[in-house]
Amino acid sequence: MVFIHKKKLYKYLFAAALLVLVFIMLLSCTLGAANISIIDSLRIILSGIPLLRNIAGDETIPRSYHTIVWTVRMPRIFLSALIGAGLSIVGSAFQGMFRNPMADPYILGISSGASAGAAIAIVLGLGGVIGGLGIIALFAFAGAVLTALTVYNLARTGSRVPTLSLILAGVAVGFFLSSLVSMLMFFNRDKLERIVMWIMGSVSAASWNQVGILFPVVIIGSVILLAFARDLNAMSTGEDTAKSLGIEVEKVKKLLVAVSSLIIACCVSTSGVIGFVGLIVPHSIRLVLGSDQRVVMPFSAAVGAIFMVACDTLARNLIPPSEIPVGVVTSMLGAPFFIYLLYRNKKKVA
């Protein structure tokens, strides 16, 4: 698919994807354990928007319904969308940068770092809130950032950061931290459930505060990543080649690792480890629209958001009133997709 010939088509498609996202977010607002009708949900949403308040006329709807939609469901839906977008766009950037279609956003061990941070906070019994943010999330964020910095510095040789060293350091540090988490769980059986639940990934504790932090990080981060889409295209054909095409590979790589790590650290510390989104979304986009990062990255963000919102809606509605961790839902849908990819590739080779 030659990019410049299809630019217009991509624009329309992207607009359509955004429409689907808005639609699915609205739909998700109307679904949930509390039995609020679709019409009432929509009226509640409308009443929260200043200019439209008068048409909505929600005086007849109980206040508690209003609270459920605006402070329980909506922040959760926005958070899911942001996390899905963040994980997916970083996944596609990493796949290009590491020249590996199997790279995922956690390849630098950031998820293990966040898990270790969260596990430490849980074991220490720190469950409070500072400045509107959970202490566990802050610990997870610190763990994620520290891990990214450690991996980066382990991989660095002089002023260069060889890609292979990054992956190897990421895997090694990730394994070390995972075993640390296992050890913490082993010696703190009473906290086991909380740690496991955190690691499984969930957005059930979403708040507008979290959305407020994640929104600028994901949006600004994505814009920066998108600005380097053409560089990533060239880098996915080899770093030497990219350099000979005029790209300052080392500088670009450092910037992309920093921006990506920040996005992932923010996502994973608010939601726990949500697997497969960052791997399968860019993959499926690539299957349908080709490998040009200028297409893959924006569509990954949009479709990642759609996928996450859909998965979380399933997670909280499949067996009410209890909830399945959303990380489990994404993986349950992700693994069969992987098998399908494998099958497809096998057919291609044969």
């Binding site: 698919m1 030659v2 990019f3 410049i4 290009g96 020249r99 590996n100 279609p101 295209n233 060239a234 996915s236 054909t237 080899g238 030497d240 080649t241 350099k243 000979s244 095409l245 005029g246 790209i247 300052e248 590979v249 690539r286 080709g290 490998s291 040009d292």
Partner: peptide, 30 residues
């Protein structure tokens, strides 16, 4: 800078393996 040099020198490596599905036109446009 890399960009200055890329306007003066082009490099053809020994072999090129691309993991991703780029079309020939995409590659040449790079």
């Amino acid at each position: 800078s890399s960009r200055d040099i890329a306007k003066k020198l082009a490099v053809v490596p020994q072999s090129t393996n691309v993991e991703f599905d780029f079309t020939v036109t995409d590659i040449v446009l790079m």
